[in-house]
């Protein structure tokens, strides 16, 4: 039978036929395409365009001018850009490791204990996720408050740890813990459902075959949730690159100059919330543009590295 493309039509009718054939598809895809265009593509384009201007509160919204790549030159002339880039990679890498390892740990532990206890345990870990970010961050600033206050001080003092103002003395520890404790629940949820989707018989078979609990995890569970693990890795890397709210609400990039400032926080500070009162929209846009490029580059590398194409094509667990 001839396929649609092979049916020859007079030239003038080909166009109308194309419309007729694709109209339904366009009709259904249209709203989603419009949303993607307005909320994803347009902001990126506007950011890139803006980064070549001098738009700021000092120039006013009407008096801006094209200044070419000057914002970019300024950024890389800054004595802090390397520190901030380094901070960003440390932040992403350590928090990512915390999120994935702790999330996986909770998922594995909570499915191997009694079902109700496991569910309760998982609900506890969801608490940071369901409390408003500002409340959650405020609780951390109180917990890490300077002596003689701060819950952390009360907890660790009996173990011989000198009481201190944790946000000042160990800002990175606080930044990692506050992001990690809220972020781990994402992996936990995904991993738990993935583990529960593995047919029970596989675990029974492994037990009969002589596998210990650790063997089962290493040889059965982990290989079968490879895809969710990679998904969480890629997804969380992207979100961490763009996230700054908990750092903003606790250390605010400090203490001192840029000690815990990450790239996205730098862009936010420059464009929307800086100390000098001159909101440098265009300069911040240039920083955000670099962030977009970093994100793109890393996602391409990760998808290549994990052979994304093969991964999604691979047959899933079948019984």
């Amino acid at each position: 039978m001839a396929r649609i493309e092979e049916i020859a039509l007079p030239r003038e009718r080909q166009a109308t036929a194309w419309w007729r054939f694709n109209a339904t598809a366009l009709l259904f895809l249209g709203p989603a395409m419009a949303l993607v265009l307005v909320f994803f593509i347009a902001p990126v384009v506007i950011t890139f365009v803006m980064s070549f201007t001098d738009l700021a509160t000092s120039t006013g919204l009407s008096n801006w001018q094209w200044i070419g790549p000057e914002n970019y030159q300024r950024m890389f002339r800054s004595q802090f850009w390397l520190t901030i880039l380094g901070n960003t990679f440390v932040y992403v890498a350590v928090v990512l490791a915390f999120n994935v390892i702790v999330g996986l740990g909770i998922a594995l532990l909570s499915v191997h204990v009694e079902a109700k206890a496991g569910g309760l345990f998982r609900s506890l870990w969801l608490l940071p996720r369901i409390s408003p970010s500002v409340v959650y961050a405020l609780m951390w600033t109180w917990a890490a408050a300077s002596p003689p206050f701060g819950m952390i001080n009360y907890v660790v003092e009996p173990f011989g740890v000198e009481p201190r103002y944790w946000i000042q003395s160990d800002p990175w520890l606080i930044v990692i813990l506050i992001n990690g404790f809220v972020g781990a629940s994402f992996g936990m949820l995904i991993f738990t459902s993935a583990i529960k989707a593995i047919p029970e018989d596989l675990f029974r078979a492994a037990q009969v075959d002589g596998a210990s609990a650790l063997h089962v995890i290493r040889r059965i569970t982990l290989p079968l949730i490879k895809w969710p693990i990679l998904f969480v890795l890629v997804y969380q890397t992207m979100s961490l690159f763009a996230s700054y709210e908990y750092i903003y609400l606790t250390t605010n990039g400090g203490p001192g100059l840029y000690a815990t400032e990450t790239w996205s926080l730098w862009a936010f500070h420059t464009a929307l919330s800086n100390y000098y009162g001159n909101l440098d929209f265009a300069y911040g846009a240039a920083m955000a543009a670099i962030l977009v490029l970093m994100g793109l580059g890393i996602s391409v590398v990760m998808l290549r590295l994990f052979r994304f194409g093969q991964l999604v094509a691979e047959p899933r667990v079948e019984v």
């Binding site: 029974r204 037990q207 009969v208 002589g210």
Partner: peptide, 20 residues
Amino acid sequence: LHPKDRGIGMVFQSYALYPH
């Protein structure tokens, strides 16, 4: 005794072959 210490082999209804 734990299943692994009983000296049994088992075939499951679903076969339970490890897909990976």
